[in-house]
Design a protein around this nucleic acid. Structure first.
Length: 646
DNA sequence: AGCACGCCGACT
DNA sequence: GTCGGCGTGCTC
């Protein structure tokens, strides 16, 4: 009989991120199990904290006297050994705590639902599963010797007549095949739109009880329902967003990641693990198949291809859309001039609207991305942060795009004028201009504020920002990409790849016999889109980054906190490691940040050292600041591989 | 986080 | 001689 439980405590303190042993009092013997949630005492203050049982044993390996567990919160073993191990790996990779990962991996308890579910289980209402068995209960299936494939697949373009993108259907067909072999699948997609498209596709092809949805939009009870169903032991397709990677499914055959470069896959909560990395860790842990699929591979995926870790396949069909690059010419029709549309594209779009739909992708949201002074033509800037003011809606007040502040009154710093006019066009102004260029068309706006999954019928002229385009069944006869030049003018390491990614996503919504017009000039990125040679462009970009030690060819840690904390942490880390440090720079709010670059090999020792440094910072008193006597906790934070750091 | 242990200044 | 300051360290 097990007398000792190893428990991971659910406390945010990095110094308590370890496994403590507790004695199991007699009354808890009946309900305790590996994976259950328990309450455990912590000496100081008679505090009681929650935790998960990670293991049970006869004997203690701790020489001191064990405290007794207080209670079992719920007898349901919600934390399977596989997920516990995955969470530990994720925490280690990110210099974070197990607790932080478990918060993402195990949904909040829905007590009443969980109790009812457990009672139904115990009553043996499901003879086919015969009670709870964890996924890794031995050599139950024959996954052993043969390593499963790890691949990148360049996704097929186009949209089926039922409105499902072919790329998504290809993934779901593969998932259904795995399911038919009696194994589980995880499918991760960027957001709820793809989840809904996928569920619709699967609804006619799989028993709905075998499809489990995991995304943040679910209400707590629904989340619990789908989560607990994964524990039942029946193979399922778990489809969802970031959290799907933590689904405790049984017999995991495959993980499919759709469009791993989408920003939605960066976890906004500590320890900020990217879905791609969680997938890689889970693959290594379980040996399952792992397939990344997207129209354009991410730089991270190309790195893995070049290392030989992923094999690349091209699933694109021969009927890739024709892509035409053309600039609009001065002296063209005035309406086109305003709408920034090349006249050739305009003629084709007009024809297309009679029998199909047209998509225009615009580079900027809002009404006007910038305002200029009517007196002197200078750009209008924000007084507090110095960036340019824009206009979110026609006739709306000027608003700072960075700090969000609205300006009731404004006067030009250069000439004193109080009048400004819009400069450039966001979606809304583009719609206004298009109304004139396409009289009679039904204008549909899709941006972050107007979410639309699809359009139906014909004659729709859809104006969308990047990543928000609705899907037209069978595709758009004509896709026009506006503002390509200005998108490439932005600052940042990822500008070119981000732009290409967004264009490719819109181009892929084109009908098989349709055309894509790039309104702009020839640039390596627009040429790659035209020639369907995206992989080569990303590879070139990756090589350039390798030469300059930019991610993803190196790992990056962002060290953040007070100037003293950051400098102290870097100094201590520098005592034992060779550090490549950029910064620290101090922000307006008084906090400092530095970037530390490291090779993947060096990260294996440096990241644990960073975790140790966080523990040290949390336990030792902060250096006494002159003036302030507050002994506040440490504000040192370390974020690994922050997106868009350069 | 909390809270106990521990070694130096002004008090009945 | 003690009460108490909060610096340091620990939590099974």
């Amino acid at each position: 009989m097990a007398r000792v439980a190893s428990v991971a405590l659910l406390t945010p303190l990095p110094q308590l991120d370890r496994v403590l042993e507790y004695a199991i009092p007699e009354p808890l013997q009946a309900s305790i199990a590996v994976g259950v949630r328990v309450r455990a005492p912590l000496r100081t203050g008679g505090r009681v904290v929650e935790g998960f049982v990670l293991a049970l044993a006869e004997e203690s390996s701790y020489e001191g006297k064990l405290a007794e567990l207080v209670s079992v919160v719920s007898p349901v073993p919600v934390l399977t050994p596989e997920i516990a191990e995955l969470a530990r790996e994720v925490a280690n990779r990110q210099a974070g705590t197990l607790n932080d990962v478990l918060r993402l991996a195990v949904p909040a308890r829905s007590a009443r639902f969980e109790a009812a579910w457990w009672e139904a289980r115990c009553a043996g209402s499901a003879p086919e599963t015969g009670g709870i068995r964890h996924a890794v209960d031995g050599d139950s299936d024959a996954t052993e010797a043969v390593p499963r494939e790890r691949a990148f697949r360049a996704a097929p373009h186009g949209v089926r007549s039922d409105g499902t993108p072919r790329a998504l259907a290809a993934i779901l067909d593969a998932a259904l095949a795995d399911l038919s072999h009696g194994e589980s699948v995880i499918v991760a997609v960027p957001d709820f739109r793809e989840v809904e498209l996928a569920l619709r596709y699967l609804s006619t092809r799989a028993d709905e009880r075998l499809v489990r949805r995991m995304d943040a939009r679910l209400k707590p009870k629904e989340r619990a329902r789908h989560f607990l169903a994964c524990l039942e032991g029946t193979p399922v397709i778990a489809i969802g967003t970031r959290s799907a990677l933590y689904a405790p499914v049984t017999k995991l055959a495959s993980i499919y990641i759709w469009d791993d470069d989408d920003d939605s896959f960066t976890e906004p909560l500590a320890p900020y693990a990217h879905t791609r990395d969680v997938a890689l860790l889970r693959q290594q842990l379980t040996g399952c198949r792992l397939v990344f699929s997207s129209y354009v591979p991410s730089a991270a995926v190309v790195r893995l291809i070049d290392m030989g870790w992923l094999t690349a396949h091209d699933d694109r069909q021969v009927n890739l859309p024709r892509v035409v690059i053309s600039e609009h010419v001065l002296g063209e029709d005035d309406r086109l001039q305003h709408a920034r549309i090349p006249s050739y594209a305009w003629r084709r779009a007009r024809e297309a609207l009679s029998s199909s739909n047209v998509l225009m992708q615009v580079g900027r949201a809002g009404y006007a991305p910038a305002l200029v002074c009517e007196g002197c033509g200078e750009r209008v800037t924000c007084r507090s942060c110095g960036t340019f003011l824009g206009q979110p809606r026609k006739d709306a007040l000027p608003r700072c795009r960075v700090c969000g502040r609205d300006y009731m009154r404004w006067s030009c710093l250069h000439c004193g004028s109080e009048r400004a006019r819009p400069s450039g066009s966001g979606v809304h102004r583009t719609v206004e201009e298009l109304g004139r260029a396409f009289p009679g068309a039904t204008l549909v706006v899709a941006d972050g504020e107007h979410e639309r999954v699809s359009v139906s019928g014909t004659g729709n002229l859809v104006v969308a920002t990047r990543g928000t385009a609705p899907i037209a069944p069978s595709g758009y006869a004509c896709v026009i990409l506006l503002d390509t030049g200005s998108m490439l003018l932005r600052e940042g390491l990822d500008v070119v790849l981000d732009a290409l990614h967004g264009w490719a996503a819109a181009a892929a919504l084109c009908a098989d016999d349709g055309e894509v017009f790039v309104a702009g000039s020839e640039h390596p990125a627009t040429i790659a889109l035209r020639d369907h040679s995206e992989l080569a462009l990303v590879r070139e970009e990756l090589q350039a980054r390798r030469a300059l030690s930019f991610p993803p060819t190196v790992r990056v840690a962002e060290v953040h906190g007070t100037r003293a904390e950051v400098e102290h942490a870097l100094e201590r880390l520098g005592e034992q490691h060779e550090l490549d440090i950029l910064g620290p720079l101090t922000d307006e709010d008084g906090t400092s940040r530095a970037l530390v670059r490291m090779s993947y090999a060096n990260a294996r020792t440096l990241v644990p050292a960073m975790k140790a440094e966080l523990v040290r910072a949390a336990t030792s008193r902060p250096a006494p600041l002159p003036g302030k006597r507050r002994a506040a906790g440490s504000t040192l934070r370390i974020r690994l591989d922050p997106p868009h750091a350069f």
